[in-house]
Structures are given as C-alpha cells and as structure tokens.
Design a protein around this nucleic acid. Structure first.
Lengths: 350, 350
DNA sequence: GGAAAATCCGCAAACGTTTGCGAGTTGGCG
DNA sequence: CGCCAACTCGCAAACGTTTGCGGATTTTCC
C-alpha cells in the first residue's frame, strides 16, 4: 500500500539515487529518465517517507508546542497564529497540552526531544526553569512565549506591567479608590508583572495598597468567582476589580451576576486579555488585548532564526498591549480613553 | 549534545543490542550490565531517537489532526479532548488547521502521510471526499469527526437532525410561527442535517416552510450578521432565529444588538453549539450542546482500534446532544424544558 | 561428572532515505 | 584523431534504531 523509493526505482528501472534526485530536484536528471521516474511515481502513488529523510538529514522540520490549556481563548489564538506561521515556513506542529502539571510539562518536552523536533515553543509553568535547563543540556532550540521562566532562552511576551498600570490608572481617574486585583499564580512572570503594575499605578495615584484587596493564586474561573465573593464580603468592599486574565474575568463576572450587582454602576471591572466576542458580554468588557497573532509569528521567527544559528545570543521581545475601551470600566461606550502612561511601543532588547 | 545508543554502548562497554534492551525492557539483562548501562545513560543524558525507532518499527505513535479552525470554540474543545486522549494512549498529535481551503486540506493529509502518522482524524470540508479517497489509496487509517464526507470511513458525529428538531419544536410550542434558520455551507453534512431537522419540525407543527426564512452558506459570524439583518428587513420578519452553529449565533447576536432588538422579547434566538461561557452572554443563550469531550475520546478510540485491525468494517458513531435551556428562547431562566421529541440516546451502528 | 537446559549476550542485517565519489558517455576543439 | 570538459548516472556508506539468530557461559538434574 505504502511504497518506497526502491519500488519506484525498480519500476522505472533506474537507480535509487536518480529517483531521490528527481523527487527532491537536487541534481539535474535527463529528460528521459525524469519522465520514466515521474510516471512510475504516479503509477504506484509514491509518498516520500519523512521519517527516513529526517533521520538521514537530522532535521525533522517539526516544531514542538507545549502549552497550558488550549481551551483558554488567549492560548487558542496563539496556537492558531503559531500553526499558521509554522506551516507557511514548511514546519509541522506537534501539540501538547500539559495543564497545570509540571510533571506533564517535563514529559511533553521529553517526548518532543525524542521525536527530534527542530525546536520548541513553550509557555512555561512556574517551575519551567527546570524543564528548560534540561533542554539546554540537550542543546535544543526553544523560545518561551507569554511567560518567562529562564532569561537564558529567547522569549516573546507582552508589556504586562505597563498595560496593567494603564488599566488601573484609568480606574483611579474615574474616581475609584478601592480597587481590587485578581492575580494569578505568583510563580508566573505574567502574574508578578501584572500585580506590580497594579501596585505601581496605585502608588502613582497616591492610593494605599491594601493587601486585603489583592488576591493571588487563582487560575481558573471558579477560584476567581469564589475570590470575588470574598472580596465583596469585606467590610469595605472594592468598587472596582481588575481581573489578571480572561479566565478570572469570567469568574468575576459570574460572581457579580450572582449578587445581582450591576457593572459598572455597582462595581467596575476591567480585565487583561480580550475575547473575540467580548463585545457580546453585557456589559461590554474593557480589556487589555494582547497581540496574539504577532506574538505567535514572532515566536516562530525567533525560533527559526535560532535553529539556523544556535549560537545567537538570547533575544527578548516584548510586545505592546492595546487597551480595548468598552463599557465595564464605567465609561460610556466609545468614550475616548486617555491613559496617563503612554502606549508602550513594541520593543526588543539585545 | 544529542547522543546515541552507540555512545552509551561504548561508554558502558556493552553491545548496542544490550543497551537497546535495557532501554526498552524487551529482554532480560543481568543486574551488572543493566547497572552499567543505566549509569552511562544518565551520565551522557541519552534520549532515544524516535525517528529511527519509528522507521525501524514502521509505527510512529503519532496521530494527525486536520481541522477547519481551532479558534472555533467547538473545535477547540474537541482538539483538547483529542489531545488528552491521544496522550493518555501514548500518541502525539500533529496539528494542522486548514481553514476553508480544500487545497490546504489535501496538503495537510499529504504532509501527515509523509510523516507516517499511524492514523488521522479529520473534520472534512465539503470536498473532503476526494482527500479521503486519496487516503484510502494509501491505506492510512482515518476517522471523520463532526462531519461526514465518506461513509466508507469511520466517523463520530452528533444527532444534528434530532437536536435541531427539538430546538425548533420548542420555539413552535412557544407560539412562534415565523422561525428563521441560519444554515451553513450545504456541502457539509452537519448543515444538511440541521436544516433538514428544522424543516421536519416545522412540518410536524403544521407550519409552512418559507424559503425566505432559510439562509444557507454563511460560515463566519460576519456573514451571519449580514444575513440576520437581511432577514429582519423582510416584510414579514421572523420572530425567532435558529443559528446553525456557534459562530452564526455570535453574528446574529451582533445584528440584533445593532438594531436594539431585545432577545427574546422582540426576537428569540437559539443556537447549535454551546460556549463554556454561554451563561455570560445577555440574554443567556439556549443552545444544543455537543458532547465535545466524548466525541474526541470516541474518535481516538475508534482510530486506535482501526490501527490495530485495519480490516474492521467502517464504524459509525452518533452521539446525543443536550439542550441547554436558558433564556434566549423566551423561557424564564431555569424553566423546565419539555421537548416533544425524546432525547436521542447515544447510538452506534454496525 | 556429564549432558541438557537455561541464561546471557553480541553480530549483523534491516528500516527508507541522502549524498560523496567516481565511472561511463558525449561533445567540442585543436 | 586525441584530449579534456561537461554531463549523466549508479554504488555504497551512512543516519540511529530493532531483533532474529546463534555462541558462550552458567545452572540443573540424573
């Protein structure tokens, strides 16, 4: 059913070498033989064996992608961009979703290396540093996305600090003085940067940082929902909430709904990460939208560069974030947004 | 950096054969040698080369996944389930997103076959039949999901007809007499089955089928949005709309919002496909929720069975759909839902 | 103590490619 | 006619594994 070069060579009565060369166009072949070979190929429906080819060339034209949870719309978007870019460049993607489990993260990397991917893209967990160290030992090219666990590797992330700061500053300007932050796992660089941006904005506004208004560690909508209820149960509840990412925004939204609190009249809500359908939530959510597509494309480009030249110094890319100004912050729909912090342009260090 | 069996065998001073056997545990090895080998492996950080292994064994423990658009939440969910199940079974997933493009669909399959996947899972386009025929010629195991393009291959899909029928019947019972249907590309079995279910429900209710209320061919939110506007511009506009899938529901929702029409008071809306956050739209959407997880799991299981025994007769699985009864159909939240058509149980033919 | 059985191990051929090297042929030119 | 360049092509070794076969050593049992 599946045929080989040898089958073709027998049928066309030429050498293996010649068949290989007409298949790959890697050296001139006379018109006569080429015709015979091509006829034979069509006749038996020959399909090259990439495995053998990769083995011989020690290059599989395959990229490994290890990510937390494809179902998170943010990652879905990134995966989409990565796959497209990789495909355009002639690479195929191996996919691994490792959830929250560091062990599964390591497993994924091991599997990828065993399959001899040419390089890999990873959104590392909080202990991704160990996994990356292991990779370094194998000399496998890799780039981190979204989060950074080891500055020794390339990465492309966004300006979490600046964007969160702008979000919070905006709430301050609208008069909010008790602003809560739903933060993520502090092992993640994103969470740390976003919480730092939040603190910074408060300090800039001369507001106290109340530890009771910062809750960290929730990673799923459900924990965010519960955390939100807890926040609102306080003696002096927040008048505004900053969700550290899209999942937390969903949780917060649910909690607010359960309490029949109106957004933004009773409590304002802004969130990191946009949804493709964020305009359909009521109220329409004000968000910090990451450039997922650009992020994916840059990641692939960085990786291919490094595969070409493994000696490159680590390259760090930080992309700007766009604030999508909608209603949940308390502004009328479409009202102009005037941040105090200027928009952070795409930057690249080293 | 990357080492081989031979490196290990040299360092441990044993034969290649022995190293291979301790790595795979495929034949007993004396305690002494095993220890030496394991020490050597650790020392040089040996990682097996799956490419060579696959070549020799002619089995790559890899599954190809070709899908339309991962960003569609419905497919995202399926991809997630597929990846998880495949991983549990020791297989890795190759991912290809081919959009609407039949050419890219064929490309994807070709790439997968060249990479010698053990089998593949595909949500075929309207002309997927050709692509599948090509596969048959190569003898590559495959299962179709979501849609069916060639009954000669295994598939696992849902009861589109029955579910749509229940959705529409429910609207009829609420008194709607002009119910519009936003259908998909009629080349897809899902679209045909859903539209058929819609017609059937109307006939059952003794209502006329007005061709002006059926619009087919839209596949993206934007075209559904435009189609919805057109529907509402009619002399006798519909009082209820059935969205053929989640994307169309988003488009319809946008159009209704743009017209400041209230759902369900002015126009009722129900939709095929659920969203994980469907409870956060306002109004909360009544949907026909597919068992994405089960679908993914069954697909992998079917595929692995077939890989084991390629001679199996084609197996067809049709899963039941759960109606998630919320507000957009015009019922009070949480009101009981009493379909005339009994819930279609999971069935399996042949 | 000796033969048979059991145990432990290595040789070398394959899996399906790619490619350096060199052999054979042809044509051009003096 | 002779020689060299240009052109075409095939041989065979490699890529990193797996595994059938058989040789050597040890154990078992009478």
């Amino acid at each position: 059913m599946i045929t080989t070069l040898k089958d073709v060579s027998r049928l066309a009565d030429v050498s293996l070498t010649t068949v290989s060369h007409v298949v790959n166009g890697t050296r001139p072949v006379s018109e006569k033989l080429r015709a015979r070979v091509e006829a034979a190929i069509r006749q038996i429906g020959y399909t090259p064996n990439s495995l053998a080819r990769s083995l011989k060339l020690s290059s599989s034209r395959t990229l490994g992608l290890a990510i937390q949870d494809i179902r998170n719309p943010h990652f879905t978007e990134i995966v989409y961009a990565l796959e497209e870019r990789a495909r355009e460049r002639g690479f195929t993607l191996l996919l691994s979703d490792f959830g929250d489990d560091p062990a599964r993260e390591s497993d994924a990397l091991r599997v990828f290396v065993e399959r001899r991917v040419d390089g890999l893209i990873i959104a590392p967990t909080s202990n991704g540093a160990a996994a990356l160290a292991w990779l370094r030992g194998r000399g496998v090219p890799a780039v981190q996305i979204d989060r950074i666990a080891d500055p020794g590797f390339d990465y492309v992330v966004v300006s979490n600090h600046a964007a969160t700061r702008r979000l919070v500053t905006h709430l301050c300007q609208k008069g909010h003085r008790r602003i809560a932050m739903l933060g993520g796992l502090m092992g993640l660089s994103t969470s740390r940067e976003r919480v730092a941006g939040y603190r910074r904005a408060l300090r800039d506004a001369g507001l106290p940082v109340d530890p009771g208004l910062i809750v960290v560690g929730c990673s799923q909508p459900e924990s965010a929902r519960i955390a939100t209820h807890a926040l609102l149960d306080q003696a002096a509840p927040p008048t505004a909430i900053v969700a550290g990412n899209n999942l937390k925004a969903l949780g917060a939204l649910r909690a607010l709904g359960e309490r029949n609190l109106r957004v933004p009249e009773d409590v304002a809500l802004v969130s990191f990460d946009d949804f493709p359908w964020a305009d359909l939530f009521r109220p329409r959510l004000t968000t910090a939208a990451q450039p997922c597509r650009a992020l994916g494309e840059r990641a692939v480009d960085l990786l291919l560069d490094r595969i070409r030249d493994p000696g490159l110094a680590p390259r760090h890319v930080r992309l700007g974030v766009e604030i999508r100004h909608r209603e949940s912050c308390g502004c009328a729909a479409g009202a102009p947004f005037s941040p105090t912090t200027p928009h952070v342009p795409t930057s690249k260090s080293v």
